[in-house]
Design a protein around this nucleic acid. Structure first.
Lengths: 192, 192, 192, 192
DNA sequence: GATGAATGAGAGTTCATTCAT
DNA sequence: CATGAATGAACTCTCATTCAT
């Protein structure tokens, strides 16, 4: 009966925000960004269209936040020191990558579906770069240590392979042997 | 005095059809299928919206034709026998692939942008499979001949790498060293 | 402070629905189904085009609902037992019919304008038959009882006369003497 | 090889005009005025869209001409003296009316489909009145001679019955007994 | 905080009409 | 005389966004 404290309000807002982003992710993954409507998202979340605008000022912003929230949570899972990768960490990173793909299937589906659309890309470029740059740099350092002649190019090469494997897994998980590919990749880089 | 000959009309139609498909490709590549409007395509082509429907009965059909025209022209360029790949052909195929990426940059941008959108994928699946299946099969045969334990999985692994490299080249051609990656890939497979 | 109650929303919806159907009736009656546009209806109702689709999912559906709402309300006014017409009821039915024509002028204008358009007819056939069949059957029974040699044909003959009189009244009410025709019709059938 | 004479040209024009009107009638009868497109009519006639505009300056005009050409040709078939109907002529007129309905089914379908649409009606009102007025006047005179108290109202009553019977025959010729109704009508008016 | 009625711009599509040939 | 490519306005319908309650 007593008025809710501002802390309680804060909690409600955070939870609802989370709910909207999760619902948006589901709907975006199925229908794509342009194909999904605010009504779809509201329906999935079980709330009104109007309420969504209480939390996000536009559909574009929902996409941005969906993507960057995903990147942030993924970043947190990598959590080892940001510099000086070891071979063990390299190996582990490959494992983690594929685990995340499986775990956050919907997120990655959205991520890749949006990756190639120039105009949507524009929206998320900043969040993306913030996350990807250090990873590429770390690999560049590692490959330098390992004696590769062109460590940056090798890092891009590795990144590309991971992208390709990820996409193929996302498109058609049934016929794609994750295990084989992980093993094969480790063989190429002589990882433990 | 006399009406335009049917040959004249045919020429006009062929040319205009080409113009529309080319314009569609450009616009689709930038905005994606759902994000691109018929008005955008008409604007790019410098014609009226209505005229587009004199040539294609729907937006869906424009996408289908754009994709399958691209696949067809690409298929013609591979042109070596459809069975029994040799290592030389394997090597050459990698070269050709990256040449095509450079040559038909817009097409591949569209191709990859469309690849991840479930609903759009549905529209072009048939054309796509018709082209991709034999390629995967041929590689499976080749890897079998080369003694790989799981030739189909290896074919998918190779395909994924090519996808990943292609996408990274398409997204950011300036900072991506095509030459390094081609060379690196050939080293992995011990190609000439 | 609190959101609109669902009762308030329900009231708004009911009223607006009514408004749209009434406006549609007016416009359909003047321009016919194909000739009337959603913009016309929205204009007549003083609302936006978009709002109409908040209440009816298509133009077809608006027509269907318009027709069947009219038939339903008319059916309710006949209200005497559905079987075993008497001569008194026959006589009364003629009176009611012409009263309704006067009362629901616009509805009947639409009804008849739509009657002859094959494709539109297709849309409303079911609603129509549901209403008309029992009437024809009852008259067939009545004419059988009265000793007519071909009671069904006589029922169709009577129905045709009523149609013809109705249409002529609808087209040009000023110069058409309803009273004379009602009286004349009763004379033919020796009604009270 | 020699240039066609202007008389030949005249003939060609007349024939083509006829062809277009006939084709328009067929298409209008099936799809209605609004539902039929110029392309449909051109297709039915086996000519180009452009050529139609060489003969008629608008779609509206095609409708007008279709209707009034039909009325004119019908008028010619009645052909008995325009004044002083006899009972024999009355009887014959009923017969002719139903013969024409059967013969020119498509025309009458169009005629009635267009009858109730206020805006289309506007277009053909003049042609219509030119034809209908004398018929109504003649019947008024006849009913006066026969001693009816309100001969004009009786003429409208008869006209309405003919309309109603015609419409019901047009809508559903299979289940409508023309013969019964003709006979019945003659009985009412004590015709030979 | 929460609702959903309401808007308006813009989507894909159709079609009467024009016009160069 | 005849063609059909081309236009542009209007069509049905969708949807991100606003706002009174």
């Amino acid at each position: 009966m007593s008025p809710k404290t501002s802390i309680q309000f804060e909690d409600i807002r955070k939870e609802k925000r989370r709910l909207i982003l999760d619902s948006a992710l589901k709907v975006f993954a199925i229908k794509g960004y342009h194909g999904a409507s605010i009504a779809n998202i509201a329906g999935e979340a079980g709330i009104s269209k109007g309420l969504i605008y209480n939390y996000f000022s536009s559909k574009e912003l929902i996409l941005k936040e969906t993507i960057s929230a995903g990147l942030k949570s993924m970043f947190e899972q990598y959590h080892f020191e940001t510099e000086n990768y070891s071979l063990e960490q390299f190996s582990k990173l490959i494992d983690i990558t594929f685990d995340l793909l499986e775990e956050d299937y919907e997120y990655w589906k959205l991520y890749f579906s949006v990756l190639m659309q120039t105009d949507v890309m524009e929206l998320i470029k900043d969040s993306l770069m913030e996350f990807l740059m250090p990873v590429i740099q770390n690999f560049t350092q590692l490959f330098e240590k390992l004696g590769y002649a062109k460590p940056y190019d090798e890092a891009r090469f590795l990144g590309s392979i991971l992208d390709g494997l990820s996409i193929n897994y996302i498109i058609d998980p049934e016929n794609f042997s994750k295990e084989y590919c992980v093993q094969r990749l480790k063989t190429i880089y002589k990882l433990p």
